[in-house]
């Protein structure tokens, strides 16, 4: 089983196959406009058609890909990948999204940038701090002062300053 799955084309088409089946299940349950009456093309038509096509092509790719050998192996493709920094970066983006509303634009962005630099091995703390702070402050002042875009100051800032809006 593992041997069969050790193929880039096959795993990719399998992922799309699963997605298309789940999508089809929901597509068949989509509500129909009760007032549209005899309209032949409704909210379900395209989604159902697309998912059936996707299922068909994914199955075809699964069959065709069995004929290919060698280079398609996943373990060969991912050899030498640096997983840790990538995972940490993804994690830091997720954290950024999570804390953005509470910390506000400036603090959250600064922390994200600085931790990103750290994760990728930048050891000069002063440089990291300067670059991150300068970038965030520059963008913040451009957006809010020059373009008049409203950026929420964040729950933390509001709590500290006791301000409204």
């Amino acid at each position: 089983m593992m041997y069969l799955l050790n193929n880039k084309d096959r795993v990719g088409s399998l992922l799309i196959l699963v997605f298309a089946i789940v999508y089809l299940k929901y597509a068949l349950g989509l509500p129909l406009d009760p007032t549209a009456g005899d309209d032949s093309f409704n909210a379900r038509t395209l989604p159902v058609g697309l998912s059936i096509a996707a299922i068909a092509f994914a199955l075809l790719e699964l069959i065709v890909s069995t004929r290919r050998a060698g280079d398609g192996r996943i373990n060969a493709a991912v050899q030498g990948f640096s997983w840790l920094p990538t995972l940490l970066l993804v994690l830091s983006m997720a954290v950024y999204a999570f804390v953005f509303d509470s910390l506000g634009f400036i603090l959250a962005s600064y922390l994200f940038l600085h931790s990103g630099f750290l994760i990728l091995g930048e050891r000069r703390l002063l440089l990291s701090a300067t670059v991150a702070l300068a970038l965030v402050m520059f963008l913040w002042s451009m957006l809010t002062q020059a373009f008049g875009i409203y950026l929420d100051s964040g729950d933390l800032f509001r709590f500290l300053a006791g301000l409204s809006n």
């Binding site: 990719g12 088409s13 799309i16 298309a20 406009d33 909210a43 395209l46 989604p47 697309l50």
Partner: peptide, 21 residues
């Protein structure tokens, strides 16, 4: 086949949200 599959995936993602009806 891969290009077709990815196009279909894109078309499917485009159906999310309110439809014209």
């Amino acid at each position: 086949l891969k290009a077709i599959l990815m196009t279909l995936l894109g078309l499917m993602l485009a159906t999310v949200g309110e439809d014209p009806s």
